[in-house]
Amino acid sequence: MWKRAADPMELPLVLLIGLLTAVATWLMLSRNLIRLLLGFGVLGNAVNLSIFVAGRLTRDTPPLVPLDAETIAGAFANPLPQALVLTAIVIGFGLLAFALVLAWVAYERLGTVRTDEMRVAEPPEEKA
């Protein structure tokens, strides 16, 4: 199915994905809601890049059919990863936008962005 040799750009991209994932994990382990959301944004980029790499890197022509032709002559880049990544970016953007509004409302109403201080919905603590 995939016969092409790996492109030399693959390794740097993979390392970048690793770095982004590490940064995101560190951010998301924080108790601060804003850091968690920033981590979500960074991790989203790492995941989108991995979809891009999973579609294989090539240096062929863009997958656009010329106006006066029915098909593309010769090898062309895989068009699917772009479509997938675009969709994923849009969805990620929507989710992040909602989450940020929610964090803002949470800050206004609950007076904190620290997740360990948000206990309104939890049962009251037992007095020891």
Binding site: A97, V101, W104, V105, E108, R109
Partner: peptide, 13 residues
């Protein structure tokens, strides 16, 4: 809708 929600007061409160 999103921009309006962010520019004005959040509609939730």
């Amino acid at each position: 809708t999103l921009i309006a929600a962010l520019e004005e007061e959040p509609a939730l409160d």
